[in-house]
C-alpha cells in the first residue's frame, strides 16, 4: 500500500491567556491509500485538531502535512482551497448543510464550485442521493430533513467530486447499525468495485472503529497505541 497522506512531526499550540495549550505534540502518522483509518480517543485528546491539520483547515505550529507528496502546510490559502475541492471530501459532525439550499443543491455545491456543467452535476447529485436512500427527498431543505437524512446528504456531498480522501467526524452517528455499515462501504467505494477511497474518520463508536483497517488512538495530543 502506498502512503497517500502523511503527517510529519506536527504540533499545534494554542495561546491561552499568558500560557499556551498544546493540542498536538510532535505527532507523526501515515495514511495508506484506499484504507479506512479510525481516529479514537477521549474528548480533548486532539482528534479534531488532528483532522483540521490533515484536511488543511488549520496550519500546524510545527511539522508538515503532505498529500501525495504535496505539502498542504506550505500551500497558500487560495491554492489550498482548490486542492481541497479536487482531492478531499468532508463530513462534519453536525452535518453542516447549507440551509438555503435543498438536498440536491447541497450535493451540487462542490461540483458547482468546481465549475462542473449543470446537467452533469445534477445527474451526479441525483445519483448520489439515490445511493444514500434520499432519491425522493432531493427538493427538501435541511430543516425539512431528519438528522439521519441530513447526515446522508452530507455524505453524498462529500462524495460528489469523487475525492481521493474523505475526512469524516462521526459519519454514522445518527444512523442505525445496518445503514451505518452500508454508508462506510459507500464512503470507501469498495461497494462500487472501483478504486478504493481513503477514509479518515473520527468516531466514538467502537463498532465503527472495528471495521477500520487501522485504528489510531490519541491521548493528550500524542499517539497512544495502534499506529
Amino acid at each position: 500500500m502506498s502512503t497517500i497522506l502523511q503527517a510529519s512531526d506536527i504540533s499545534k499550540v494554542y495561546p491561552s491567556g499568558e500560557d499556551t495549550v498544546t493540542a498536538l505534540n510532535h505527532l507523526s502518522l501515515e495514511f495508506d491509500a484506499g484504507r479506512i483509518t479510525a481516529i479514537v480517543g477521549p474528548s480533548g485528546s486532539g482528534k479534531s485538531t488532528l483532522l483540521n491539520l490533515l484536511a488543511g483547515f488549520d496550519v500546524p505550529s510545527s511539522g508538515n502535512v503532505t498529500h501525495n507528496g504535496n505539502s498542504i502546510t506550505a500551500m497558500p490559502e487560495t491554492t489550498l482551497a482548490s486542492y481541497r475541492l479536487a482531492h478531499f471530501g468532508f463530513i462534519f459532525q453536525n452535518y453542516n448543510l447549507v440551509s438555503i439550499l435543498n438536498a440536491q443543491e447541497n450535493v451540487e455545491l462542490p461540483l458547482s464550485l468546481a465549475s462542473v456543467p449543470r446537467l452533469e452535476r445534477t445527474k451526479r447529485a441525483k445519483e448520489l442521493l439515490a445511493r444514500v436512500g434520499l432519491g425522493k427527498r432531493i427538493t427538501h431543505r435541511p430543516n425539512q430533513l431528519s438528522g439521519g437524512e441530513q447526515q446522508r446528504v452530507a455524505i453524498a456531498r462529500a462524495l460528489a467530486t469523487n475525492p481521493s480522501v474523505i475526512f469524516a467526524d462521526e459519519p454514522t452517528g445518527n444512523l442505525d447499525s445496518a445503514t451505518g455499515s452500508g454508508i462506510l462501504e459507500l464512503l470507501t467505494g469498495r461497494s462500487e468495485g472501483s478504486e478504493a477511497r481513503t477514509l479518515i474518520l473520527i468516531t466514538h463508536d467502537m463498532e465503527v472503529a472495528a471495521r477500520a483497517d487501522k485504528i489510531v488512538k490519541i491521548r493528550d495530543g500524542r499517539l497512544d497505541s495502534g499506529a
Partner: peptide
C-alpha cells in the same frame, strides 16, 4: 458564519 465556513472548507476560495 458557519455556512461560510462550510463553503470555504469544501473548497471555495476566499474571493468566492
Amino acid at each position: 458564519t458557519r455556512e461560510f465556513g462550510v463553503i470555504r472548507a469544501i473548497g471555495a476560495k476566499p474571493s468566492f
